[in-house]
Amino acid sequence: MIFKAFNKPQLIKYIISGTAISWFLGCFFILKGYGVEVEIAWPDALAFTGLFLSGIFVLELIFGFYIPKGTNSWLLIIIPLFLSFVGAAMHGFILKWLFVEETNYLDLLKNSFFLRWAFLAIPEILISVMALVVSKLELQEETQKREASINELSREVELNSIRQQLQPHFLFNSLNSISALVVSQPQKAREMVLQLSDFLRGTIRKDHKVWVSLKEELNYLKMYLDIERVRFGHRLHVQINSDESSMDMMLPQLIIQPLLENAIKHGLYGLIGEVDIIVSTFKEQNYLVIQIENPFDEESSPSSGVGFGLSSVNRRLELLFGRSDLLITCSKEGRFMVTLKIPQLK
């Protein structure tokens, strides 16, 4: 638990080795300062260092299984105090056995027991606190990962749900049109069924995560327009103006089709005669810009454009890019325009 604060195993080895050497040298020179002979000072420092490292590893084992929290937080102090007391007592026992005839050193050893206990206790208490901090950081990281995973799953589910709604919405409209044509114009109904089959075959198997080039997307739009022309005949005129530099730019599949469907719906609603819809695509800095312009009856057709097509595309953009400024609508003098901006990720 304590060493998890360091991600690299090699770094942990260096830290342990450096701590052991520093602790040994510190103890050795302190003893020398008190006049202890070298033959006694180095075994004392070595034993004290070994017991100090043993206390750290025992704490590592304990806190690897259990981190005291809440009302049990007092254990963060008691456990290191107990371990350091045992370490100081063992140190005194070992050194008394080794240097039983060195009376002056034994007096120093006896009188320095509480000082040695403090030397062991203070760093071990700090290590206990560090273990608690590492535990809280790990818990916070796990919570953040879990929340991110839940958000990502929710985002994918909603994206998939939106995409599944798009095709049935278009499919139901097409089937209603086919139903109306079966009796009056059976040949057109058959033609529309075949075109609808080709369109669905090319789109229904696509993964919603996969982006396509504008060129490929326009091919799907042309298939869609062939179906709509069967529905509306000579009344529907769609002009597609594509800047050559934008043809290889990428966008989420079938993100234009709901907007074009919306333009056709509102362009034909309440109007008599031919309806001209203009689709323009071009590159603007790091964006692929798509503009769809259609006429509308200001008295009969709502200009706000908050139907299924616009709302679904807007929500899809928010989920993909986390932005709500990529879809802009405006209306002027009987013309309604939708501007869609697709950021290029590469």
Rank of each mutant, 00 (worst) to 15 (best):
E147H: 10
N286V: 04
G87L: 09
N104V: 11
G307F: 11
F65G: 06
D226I: 10
F48M: 14
G33C: 06
L268Y: 01
S303K: 11
S324I: 06
L171P: 02
E318A: 10
D276T: 07
L139F: 05
A47M: 13
G33A: 07
E333Y: 04
L288V: 02
M223W: 09
P168E: 01
I127R: 01
K341H: 00
E102I: 07
D226W: 12
S324Y: 09
K136Q: 14
E39D: 13
G334H: 02
G33K: 09
L225A: 00
T71E: 13
M249Y: 06
E293T: 08
L221G: 03
G18D: 13
Q144P: 00
R315I: 07
G64S: 02
F99Q: 03
A118W: 01
Q187D: 15
I278D: 11
R323K: 08
P186L: 06
F93C: 07
Q165V: 13
D226E: 13
A189Q: 02
K346S: 15
K206C: 08
G55Q: 08
S135A: 06
V210L: 11
S245A: 13
A45D: 02
F28W: 05
L288A: 04
L83K: 05
Q195F: 07
H208M: 12
R229A: 02
R316T: 10
E138F: 03
L327I: 03
S331W: 10
Y220R: 12
D297F: 00
D44S: 14
F296G: 05
K13G: 11
A148I: 14
W42Y: 08
L98A: 05
I12V: 13
I162Y: 03
M130I: 15
